[in-house]
Structure formats: structure tokens, C-alpha cells
Design a protein around this nucleic acid. Structure first.
Length: 359
DNA sequence: TGCCAGGCCCTCTTTAGGGCCTT
């Protein structure tokens, strides 16, 4: 289904390719850069440090097994959820006729899915943050502390490890040029990776090997092309009435704010069931706890410490995603973190919005 | 005047400063 939807979306682009393997090679050798890659089920299962309990590795084991019988695309989307529509705010309106204010129904989850109301923010740029931030603050976002209390978290949570490569460090002046995700439940199409056309010069190709001529092409999707596809992809991976936990190294200061600014530029609303987890504080916590020879809290140090082997060069989005996907279960296991505690450490876009507005 | 990354943590701190982490 996703194949058809993507094909429909990019039907004017003859260079669009969807394929099931060989992403890395294809990325190097073809102009085509949009790929939905079928990969083997998470290799995390075989990591020797995975222990029993409520740690993430165990969650992935259970979660992944379920995904083997719940094939990708098994959810049926009506026309209103296809690519022709923009993001539909997935929140519950208690009585839309009585009040236009929307709230999250975090108590009676079994009765939800009632109303999907399309709300597209007006065109805006980052320079118009005040208007955007005001609109976001009118929404009551889910409280992570409340979500963390759910007893059936494993049935609600989709864990997505992601990474972005950019033209620099400034979320305002720089752009995403490479984005990769991996759904830790595994299964078909559990990864998503594409280059992104930033429509500007790439000054730091020495970092990630992505040169201007590789992305400033008509057959490379711009962010405004990509966001609707990304939303649809994530929606297809979600649990019923569930939440999506996005995980990245230094997510709070870098990846999540970058993603937020790209959504704002595209005038797209950020789904309310997205949460973000930063693994950098977890690595620092491990160092602080002592008893390890972890040299620093960087992703490279974690890869070396846990002896993670990945194909490809570091500082390419998919490679770093694969690294973090293997680091995450053992890191959380070492820290004896439960799913609930991970959710408690997460943050939402509203947190970023509030901080941005304070600045 | 114009330009500028930003969040977190630690300490020789606390109305601050510097290092780490991300590209």
C-alpha cells in the first residue's frame, strides 16, 4: 500500500525508486535517493548483553515477534488518510459542537479514534514563530508522565530510532539533507531513508560525504515533498491509538529541533502522539554511574564500547541509525531502565516549542 | 552595525563560564 501511495505522490518524478535492499550501494551509485528498505529483523535480538526484564531489549523481542504476524500495511486507511490529505490531527474532541478546544483523552483509550479533524496551520516561516507557537500552545499535549503510567505500554509504543544529516549546526539557517529511521519492531519496511534537497549549498560535505550536486537535483525530494510521506510512513507503523517514541543521540539539542523547524517551514502540524528520547543523557548517566571504561558520551564512543559493527561510514544517517539501534537496548539494559522510565525521560514537541518561545 | 547553534552538565559556580555533543 505504501508503495502505491508513494508512487502516486511522486508520480511526476520518473527517477523515484523504491527497493527492498542494497540501500547503501544504491545511494552511492544512483541519483535516486528515496528508498523504503526491507531489512532483516532487528539484529538487536542477538546482542549478548540483552537481559531479561522490562528493559528495552526484552520489549523489542516481544514487540518484534508480534510484528512478524502483523504485516506492514495491514492497517486499512480510508481515503481521508491517504497522501492526498495533509496531516490530520489525531486527537480527541470530547464534544466538538460544544467546544472547539481539543484535548487528549488519556483516560478512556478504548473508546478513542472518534474524531479526526483536519487542521492545517497557515503558511508560516521560522520568522513567524510567534504565531506558530501560539497555535501550538492552544493544544493540550499529552503528558509524558501520564503516558508512562500505562500498564500496556508495549502495546501502545512504536520505537523509532532516527538520525539526520544537515548542512550545519544551525536549525534556523541550515537544512536537513539526509534522514533515516528504523522501527525497532522490525518486519517489512522497518527502515526509511532518503536524501533531501535543501535547495542550497552543502558546505560540510567533508563530514558526511554528501555534496551539493548529490542533493540539489530535481529528482531528490524537498522537505515539503517528504514530510507528507514521512507522516504516512510513521502512521503506518503506529499502534492503534498509540504513541511514537523517536530516539536519537543528542535529540533534545539537535535532531528534534531540526525536525521541528522543518515541519514549521512546511507549515505542517506535528503529530501529538510523538515523543522524543535523547540517548546522550543516558550515556552520560552510564559514565557517571562508574564501573565502565566508556571514554565519552558520543555515539562513536558508545559504538566502540559496545563493539557494534555496522557497514558504511559514520555520519551517514542510516549508518548512525543502525549503530544507535544496537546501542539502545544494551544501554538501557545497563542502566536498568524500563519502558516506563524511558517514556518519563522523553519530551514532546510542545516542550521544544515552549523553550523556543522563551528564547 | 551585523552576525551569531544550542542544550546540558560540571565547577575554579550560582546575575557564569567552559566543555561536550550533534552536522
Amino acid at each position: 500500500m505504501l508503495f502505491l501511495l508513494c508512487l502516486a505522490t511522486f508520480k511526476t518524478s520518473s527517477s523515484l525508486h523504491l527497493h527492498c535492499q542494497g540501500t547503501f550501494e544504491l545511494m552511492r551509485t544512483r541519483s535516486c535517493i528515496f528508498s523504503l528498505t526491507q531489512v532483516p529483523r532487528c539484529s538487536i535480538h542477538s546482542l549478548p548483553k540483552c537481559r531479561e526484564g522490562e528493559a528495552l531489549c526484552n520489549f523489542i523481542k516481544i514487540y518484534g515477534n508480534k510484528s512478524s504476524i502483523r504485516l506492514y500495511g495491514s492497517r486499512i486507511y480510508g481515503p481521508e488518510r491517504g497522501f492526498t490529505t495533509k496531516w490530520i490531527k489525531r486527537c480527541v474532541t470530547k464534544r466538538a459542537e460544544e467546544s472547539k478546544q481539543t484535548t487528549w483523552d488519556t483516560k478512556s483509550r478504548s473508546t478513542k479514534h472518534e474524531s479526526f479533524r483536519e487542521e492545517i496551520l497557515p503558511n508560516a516561516t521560522v520568522n513567524e514563530n510567534t504565531t506558530q507557537l501560539d497555535q501550538f500552545q492552544k493544544i493540550q499535549w499529552p503528558e509524558v508522565q501520564e503516558i508512562a503510567q500505562y500498564k500496556n505500554l508495549s502495546d501502545l509504543l512504536t520505537v523509532i530510532v532516527f538520525d539526520v544529516e544537515t548542512t550545519g549546526y544551525s536549525r534556523v539557517n541550515d537544512r536537513i539533507i539526509d534522514i533515516a529511521l528504523r522501527d525497532l519492531q522490525g518486519g517489512e519496511h522497518s527502515t526509511f531513508q532518503t536524501l533531501v534537497n535543501p535547495q542550497c549549498h552543502v558546505p560540510n560535505s567533508h563530514v558526511h560525504g554528501i555534496a551539493t550536486h548529490m542533493v540539489n537535483r530535481t529528482d531528490v525530494p524537498r522537505m515539503e515533498d517528504l514530510v507528507p510521506i514521512l507522516l504516512q510512513y510513521i502512521r503506518s507503523r503506529e499502534k492503534h491509538d498509540g504513541y511514537v517514541l523517536w530516539v536519537a543521540h543528542n535529540a533534545r539539542a539537535f535532531d528534534a529541533p531540526f525536525l521541528m523547524h522543518e515541519f514549521i517551514r512546511c507549515s505542517m502540524e506535528i503529530p501529538h502522539n510523538w515523543l522524543f528520547l535523547d540517548t546522550l543523557p543516558l550515556a552520560r548517566q552510564l559514565i557517571k554511574s562508574g564501573g565502565t571504561n566508556l571514554s565519552s558520551a558520543s555515539l562513536a564512543a558508545l559504538r566502540e564500547f559496545y563493539r557494534v559493527e555496522v557497514d558504511g561510514l559514520a555520519h551517514r544517517a542510516m549508518v548512525d541509525v543502525n549503530t544507535l539501534s544496537q546501542v539502545l537496548p544494551v544501554l538501557t539494559s545497563d542502566l536498568k531502565l524500563t519502558l516506563s522510565s524511558l517514556v518519563k525521560k522523553s519530551f514532546s514537541f510542545s516542550d521544544l516549542m515552549i523553550r523556543a518561545k522563551k528564547r
